[in-house]
Amino acid sequence: MHRFANPNQFLRIANPVLPWVAWLAALSIGTGLYLGLIQAPQDYQQGETVRIMYVHVPAAWMALFVYASMAIASATALIWRHPLGFLAAKASAPIGACFTVICLATGSLWGKPMWGTWWEWDARMTSVLILLFLYIGYMALVDAFDEPTRGQRAASILALVGAVNVPIIKFSVDWWNTLHQPASVVRLDGPAIHPSMLWPLLIMAVGFTAFYFAVLIVRLRSEIAAAKIRNIRIGQVHG
């Protein structure tokens, strides 16, 4: 971890990685779209609407994964004062928010024809909406203070506090009666999805994960540059 704490050392590792994750993202999402939209069969109950799963489910996984990463990065920022931990969390927040919006919107578009409703206040949907508010709250808090370190600390604490929501989202469908069905892929007795539908789903998930890391590296580089700009300007004022 300490090796990555220095921004310049991080850039030395991240910059060569960027083209690889970018290509991996493009290739997997392309393959996933072909498999999901053309190759994958209809569902025996849901017909063609099952194709919404290939964006909805990976987006939902990423919404949770990005938040978990953000909480861990915030913890390293709070405890060990890693400057990069905070920047990684700050760079992740908009990406996670985008995945959450995609998850909610595609879920709505899937729910209307199948369940008969765009939205219901069941435990799963409500907890994912809270996740979106946590992302938005984090982004608002980071820039809310004149003194950057205060905003950093407040936002990092919010990210950590909000982490309790992650297991709640995951297990909401098991703990309570919900309109949303229980987990299909990540469950104790193996996936309940036919391989012809599971593969496109997993490939899309790889693509979304690679996309996250590609955009994260771009945003982190941008944040590091912004931090250097701030330092130079402070130096000019005091010098």
């Binding site: 099952v50 369940w115 036919h194």
Partner: peptide, 18 residues
């Protein structure tokens, strides 16, 4: 006043279900 459908966590092609 309202009826919503719920589905289970199983996904498979129709032929497999048959």
């Amino acid at each position: 006043s309202e009826v919503l459908a719920k589905h289970d966590e199983k996904y498979m092609p129709p032929e497999v279900a048959d």
